[in-house]
Design a protein around this nucleic acid. Structure first.
Length: 771
DNA sequence: GAGTTTGAAACT
DNA sequence: CAGTTTCAAACTC
């Protein structure tokens, strides 16, 4: 029977405290995306920081429940809810003080929060008091078998959600999910999620993620008994107390290397070890979603009956990151992992099977019921990588060793672990250049730390079975992902342009985030990526492109820039937009139609030249007639490239030696520089004047100094001179004749005077009584 | 902001 | 493939 401290219960969101849902959550719930909550989903940052260390250890039998008193925590109101694992039915709301001993919290100097087994006190009956300090939160629980369960969380999780808007990737929330599948607990940490117990209401809102699902291996559709913990660690250290903790639970911690230096290779290791079943089956863990730093760790843990021998399972994990596909393979604990990296040269279908970990929004439940295997697909000559998701029903399917580079997940005799999740990684769309495979590392004891690359993340989403849409892989929009239909086995693909993928709202997925790219991405960016048309509020940085204004095309034709770029409309001004998930079928059909008309419709029009940008040219060439190819009507000119021989334009002036073009480009560049310089100068001048206003107001008021020259102090004069000098420099840069230069300088001087006078007038109006 | 111009996309 | 229409962005006033 699982017990949750009442005190904690009152603090936790309903979603978390809904034990029935946790216990009785039908398989469908796992597959069903969480209810679309626009605000929440929109606010869910895709990139989140990952806890430095997350380790899960079996709990001791004595512990029935562990709860953290939010009040006890100093800074963050992080709450940890750890329900005892028992074979019987679980009830979180019935915290029983009868629990023998409860882990107490100790704050080690290493900035870890540790919950140790201690006697229950009055404050948190049946629960442990969590003392938070430092960067890591370590929650240790003891199962009935006496095996501890420990969770280490980065201190960043404790940060209030309000800091998310700061743009600091570290502030992004991380979600911890515990799912029990096949009677075995599965714990996953998704970066997208937020802290379960956060002091701020905002954090509480997002808290939905912690869920434990117990499912007997029933149907083939939902058979996955994956015990998976996904964590992202900042460092390679594994905090789980190796010696003290029983070896039952072992997990690898996937850690990303330093954010500053994104590693080229991503290594994700996963260990699955047996755990006393009684401890695992019914245990519930509610962990307040803490903001995780940019690091993501994925740790899979398998629990099994105590009597059963420890098993190690290899878990192939295929993660498509941006244009990159990350192949992660789990190695047996005993068997060292093979390191292999395969790059772009690939066959149509890679023998390696991979598991895509779907990214989830904050409130996602890890769907373990229908775990597809993912096969990495690389099209020769194609810039893009594709992933084929295959529903894995048996462990045998997981094994395919292809080329030497592919380390086949050496599947141990134990049952294969499969993840029915896609990794959603919102990342800048970049050409898929590399396929990175993670070399499984030999599991030492409790956990292993694996470094992950900072590659942008891409979402692989489940899609409707659309067998009719199987366009040429090489012609798909950049980053297109082929997603399998639900329950359709390995057949059927849905064409998902990568940009779409990154914007797809959250289905029920496991979130795996990469830390590195997140560091640069602001929450708003992630938010914008997630949001659909009109749902996102802040996306200034996420959308370099202008919003479309389509009215008649439904944004499903190439007229629409959003559609043409393979993106969902987002905060656009379009009318009757179908370029969103609500009209997925229409959109897919439109994509197919476009590809039928033009197989390379979604390929970039501006091909990269042989040697850098200078050789860039339009793939089709323009067809301008009146613009002289010197206006943005011309696609060549718009792309800042010159027309080439393939252009059919008339009266083209967009060639290398064209004087018109040179003048135009020169003026454009000069204007840009000028704007920047003048902006800086004006800012300085305004600052000086404003500062002067505050200092001279008494003099003005007393002496009736309402004359502008009152403000012409040394500072103002210097600022004015700066403006004039910059103007002169600008004129010089643009090769303006002397007369013109003088004129520009005088004009600038006039503007400066005008500003001075304006401020003087303002000062006068601000103090009408005295002035 | 409304209207016009322009050229790509779509259509025939 | 060529001609025409549609469409939305770029541009002008």
């Amino acid at each position: 029977m699982d017990v949750v401290s009442p005190e904690l219960n009152s603090l936790l969101p309903d979603e978390i405290m809904d034990t029935e849902a946790m216990d009785e959550d039908p398989p469908a719930s796992h597959l069903t995306p969480p209810p679309q909550s626009a605000p929440e989903s929109a606010q869910v940052p895709m990139e989140t920081e990952v806890p430095e260390i997350i380790s899960i250890c079996p709990t001791t039998a004595s512990m029935q429940a562990i709860s953290t008193n939010a009040k006890s925590t100093t800074s963050s109101t992080t709450q940890l809810l750890l329900t005892p694992s028992s074979s019987s039915s679980t009830t979180t709301k019935n915290a029983t003080p009868t629990l023998p001993k409860i882990p107490s919290l100790s704050v080690p100097p290493n900035h870890q929060l540790i919950i140790n087994k201690v006697a229950a006190d009055g404050k948190s009956p049946g629960g442990a008091v969590i003392k938070q300090e430092g960067q890591k939160l370590l929650v240790a629980g003891l199962s009935k078998t006496g095996q501890p369960i420990m969770l280490a969380l980065p201190h960043a999780w404790n940060k209030p959600a309000t800091s998310q808007g700061s743009g600091d990737a570290k502030s992004q929330p991380t979600q911890i999910k515990m799912v029990t599948a096949m009677g075995k607990p599965v714990i996953a940490v998704s970066s997208a999620s937020q802290l379960v117990a956060s002091s701020t209401p905002l954090q509480a809102q997002h808290l939905k993620t912690l869920q434990i699902t117990k499912k007997p291996p029933v149907s083939t559709a939902g058979p996955m008994i994956t015990k998976l913990i996904i964590t992202k660690a900042l460092n390679n250290k594994v905090l789980s107390s190796p010696g003290s903790v029983s070896p039952v639970v072992t997990g690898r911690v996937v850690s990303q290397s330093t954010p500053l230096t994104p590693p080229r290779t991503i290594a994700i290791g996963e260990t699955i070890s047996t755990v006393p079943q009684n401890a695992a089956t019914n245990s519930k863990v509610a962990i307040s979603p803490l903001k995780s730093p940019s690091k993501l760790t994925v740790v899979s843990v398998t629990s099994q009956s105590s009597n059963s021998p420890q098993k190690s399972v290899t878990l192939p994990l295929n993660v498509a990151l941006g244009q990159q596909i990350l192949t992660v393979q789990q190695s047996a604990v005993t068997s060292p992992a093979k390191a292999g990296s395969s790059q772009s040269t690939t066959q149509t279908v890679k023998p390696v099977q991979t598991v895509t970990v779907p990214t989830s929004q904050f409130k996602t439940i890890i769907p373990l019921t229908t775990p597809p295997n993912v096969q990495q697909i690389q099209v020769p000559g194609s810039r893009f990588h594709y992933v084929r998701l295959v529903t894995a029903t048996t462990g045998s399917s997981t094994v395919q060793t292809g080329g030497s580079t592919n380390t086949n997940p050496s599947i141990q005799p134990a049952k294969p672990v499969m993840m029915n999740a896609a990794v959603r990684m919102s990342v800048p769309i970049v050409p898929a250049q590399t396929v990175k495979q993670v070399v499984p590392k030999p599991l030492s004891s409790a956990a292993q730390v694996v470094t992950t690359s900072q590659t942008p993340q891409r979402l692989i989403m489940p899609a409707t079975h659309l067998p009719q849409i199987q366009p040429n892989l090489t012609n798909l929009p950049p980053g297109t992902v082929l997603a399998p239909a639900h329950g359709s086995g390995n057949v059927g693909y849905a064409v998902l342009p990568a940009p779409y993928v990154t914007q797809i709202p959250q289905p029920a997925f496991v979130t795996l985030t990469s830390s590195s790219t997140f560091s640069t991405a602001t929450p708003s960016q992630a938010q914008a990526r997630l949001s659909l048309n009109g749902l996102s509020t802040s996306e200034a940085n996420s959308r370099p492109r202008k919003p479309c204004n389509c009215t008649r095309s439904q944004c499903l034709k190439l007229y629409c820039d959003c559609f043409a770029n393979g993106e969902f409309c987002n905060n656009c001004n379009c009318v009757n937009c179908f370029n969103n998930l609500d009209h997925e079928s229409e959109r897919l059909k439109a994509i197919k139609a476009c590809l039928d008309r033009n197989p390379v419709a979604f390929k970039p029009k501006i091909g990269k030249g042989k040697e850098g940008e200078s050789d860039r040219r339009h793939s089709k060439g323009c067809n301008c007639k009146k613009s002289g190819c010197l206006k943005n009507y011309c696609e060549c000119y718009e792309a800042k490239i010159m027309c080439s021989s393939i252009c059919k334009c008339m009266g083209c002036k967009n060639f290398e030696e064209s004087p018109e073009r040179k003048t135009l480009m020169h003026l454009a560049d000069a204007a840009e520089v000028r704007v920047q310089q003048q902006t800086a100068a004006k800012t300085k001048l305004s600052s000086q004047i404003s500062d002067l206003l505050t200092r001279t107001t008494p003099a003005i008021t007393s002496g009736g100094g309402k004359l502008p020259y009152t403000f012409v102090t040394k500072e103002v004069a210097e600022a004015t001179c700066d403006c004039l000098l910059e103007q002169a420099e600008q004129a010089e840069l643009t090769n303006q004749p002397q007369a013109m230069a003088e004129r520009l300088i005088l004009e600038e001087f006039g503007r400066c005077l005008h500003r001075i006078i304006s401020f003087a007038g303002k000062a006068k109006t601000d103090c009408p009584i005295n002035c």
